[in-house]
Design a protein around this nucleic acid. Structure first.
Lengths: 165, 165
DNA sequence: GAGATCCATCAACATGGCTGACATAAAGGC
DNA sequence: GCCTTTATGTCAGCCATGTTGATGGATCTC
């Protein structure tokens, strides 16, 4: 019978390749968040605040449920962080027009400024990586990253201009 | 004078492109860690334990300093997690031969089993994404991700077989 | 009018970061 | 052979951010 398994050295290469993929995700994410974390510390904020500010900035008028769906944390965890951001004037909540149970979330001017400061750092890092890698590489990056994201959230990344809430 | 700025719609596209990059990193990392986190919970472990197990498995006989350098946390934080893993028989420490101050870290059989179980999930996810995206895309992915990683750690990803400790 | 939904809040707990201080053993320079 | 530096561990306490569980009000939907 023919041996179905690939030669050992090919398996080895594949394992090495996949482990490098794991590590690329780990190191890239570590370095991607380190500098914003430092900026946030100056405001007494953490990474959780950053995520809230980022996504509210990205989807102005979004509901609490939508935000919970993105962050995948409990409402109690969110409420602490969100409460602080409202308290300190980075975010405002206004009742929904159609559904008045909702509290639609929007960045204030102050919130917008912080959001831009934080995301500027990350956009710079990504822009630099894109520039060095070239357009074809960027397309490959998108395709692979999209494949890593769970199916349910892949639709957030279609080519349309508007971010899907 | 000529207007140096690019047309608004090009700037807009670029901003959108970069924000999608930010979000790809966020969503990919979120989904990449979710399932291992669940497995770890069954052992009473967290993501911190995973990182230790992963890198010790990757670099058998590594020192505590090397691990600290990768994780970028304090020795006090590491010691709690590492202590548990040694206590519960997932990792062994042995004095270094050249430098007997060092405690070289190695996975036990039990540790190796857990490591494979955890990383298998992540390797599967990456393999699936690689397969769907194709070889050229994978190369682009590598190039972009490498550009996001801080210069100091890029050398961990040479094409050589051996992971650099 | 009843039930479901959206959101907030209180309380208690666990994980995993952090700082600061101190200790020990071994290595290395002079 | 001292002396300094290095590698590591440990104790104590603080903070950020996740969790579960219970409870309640306002509002929408049928």
């Amino acid at each position: 019978m023919a041996d179905i398994k690939a030669p050992t050295h090919l398996l080895f290469l594949r394992e090495e390749e996949l482990r490098q993929g794991i590590e690329l995700l780990y190191f890239a994410y570590r370095d991607f968040t380190a500098e914003p974390d430092q900026m946030l510390a100056r405001y007494g904020f953490g990474r959780a605040h950053h995520r809230v500010i980022y996504f509210v900035g990205r989807h102005p008028g979004m509901t609490v449920s939508e935000l919970l769906g993105i962050l995948r944390i409990t409402k109690q965890s969110l409420s602490r962080v969100l409460g602080q951001l409202v308290e300190e004037g980075f975010i405002v909540q206004q009742p929904g027009a159609r559904d008045r149970r909702q509290r639609l979330l929007t960045l204030t001017e102050k919130g917008t400024q912080l959001e831009r400061q934080l995301s500027q750092n990350q956009r710079d890092r990504i822009a630099r990586a894109y520039r060095r890698a070239g357009a074809d590489a960027v397309e490959g990056f998108r395709r692979v990253m999209l494949g890593i994201v769970n199916e349910a959230d892949q639709k957030r990344f279609d080519r349309s201009r508007e971010p899907t809430p």
